[in-house]
């Protein structure tokens, strides 16, 4: 669904190379490597404690890897562009309005012209009429839209979202995915983590399966389901069934 813009195999917008993360005795990530390309939607899935949030945090730059590196496209690096980041919970100022939040982060991102960027995000997220409302007065869905808008205000080449639809109702979830897919069609690479495997199956071009910090699979969702079926797991039918079967096959 998000693959209208053909992935550029030669020049990925994001390269995760041999990333490992250790918290004391706990090895949260082990030698994880993959690429994300322009316009591609990559879902990071796995059970609780698999290392999804840690991987997203390292991609977003809020944590440093113990080993390995995360590299963006050369042109974006030269322009000082960062990976756009949408944390799981809204990371914004509740006493500021929607526009003030966007304006603040546009300025902190040192955009040459912050106002047009703010207007663009307000239009794209459908929050133009709520621009002057304080965040504390918005619904959870609208707050998450602002959260995503702030992650995109600097028009980053790649956007990392940590369980973006976790606190949304079905209608809000649908609207959020419409917006994310539109960005993907515009060429933004999307990497998101989720527990809702139906979303990964429906929207992702590729899934990264993590468990106990290890990357166990990297490929299209259909390929993952076929692989699980091929191992005699029966008719997987859905990505969710496939993942459960896959982990059971591995004895996890």
């Amino acid at each position: 669904m998000g693959a209208l813009a053909a992935p550029d195999a030669v020049s990925p917008v994001l390269s995760v190379r041999g990333v490992a993360k250790r918290f004391g005795e706990l090895q949260a990530l082990r030698d994880v490597s993959f690429d994300a390309h322009a316009g591609e939607i990559v879902a990071v899935v796995g059970p609780n404690g698999a290392g999804k949030t840690t991987l997203l945090s390292i991609i977003a730059g809020t944590q440093r890897p113990s080993a390995g590196e995360v590299v963006g496209p050369p042109r974006a690096r030269a322009q000082g562009a960062r990976v756009g980041w949408v944390p799981q919970q809204t990371a914004l100022y509740s006493k500021l309005s929607v526009a003030e939040n966007l304006r603040l982060f546009a300025r902190l991102e040192k955009l040459a012209e912050p106002e047009p960027a703010v207007q663009r995000m307000l239009e794209q997220t459908g929050l133009l009429e709520r621009a002057s409302d304080r965040l504390e007065r918005l619904s959870g869905g609208n707050r998450q839209r602002v959260n995503v808008a702030v992650g995109l205000v600097a028009d980053p080449p790649v956007l990392a979202l940590d369980e973006p639809s976790a606190s949304l109702d079905p209608r809000q979830r649908e609207r959020l995915w419409e917006f994310i897919c539109a960005r993907s069609r515009g060429g933004t690479g999307i990497v998101f983590s989720t527990h809702t495997l139906g979303e990964a199956q429906r929207f992702a071009d590729r899934v990264i399966v993590l468990d106990r910090g290890e990357l166990l699979f990297d490929g299209p969702p259909q390929a993952f389901m076929r692989q699980v079926d091929g191992r005699g797991a029966g008719e997987a039918g859905s990505l969710e069934h496939a993942l459960v079967a896959f982990l059971e096959q591995l004895g996890r």
């Binding site: 730059g61 809020t62 980041w85 944390p87 990371a91 100022y93 982060f105 902190l108």
Partner: peptide, 13 residues
């Protein structure tokens, strides 16, 4: 508390 700190210190400030 607003969870904005991580967003700020990842290169903005």
């Amino acid at each position: 508390e607003e969870r904005a700190l991580a967003r700020l210190v990842r290169g903005l400030v």
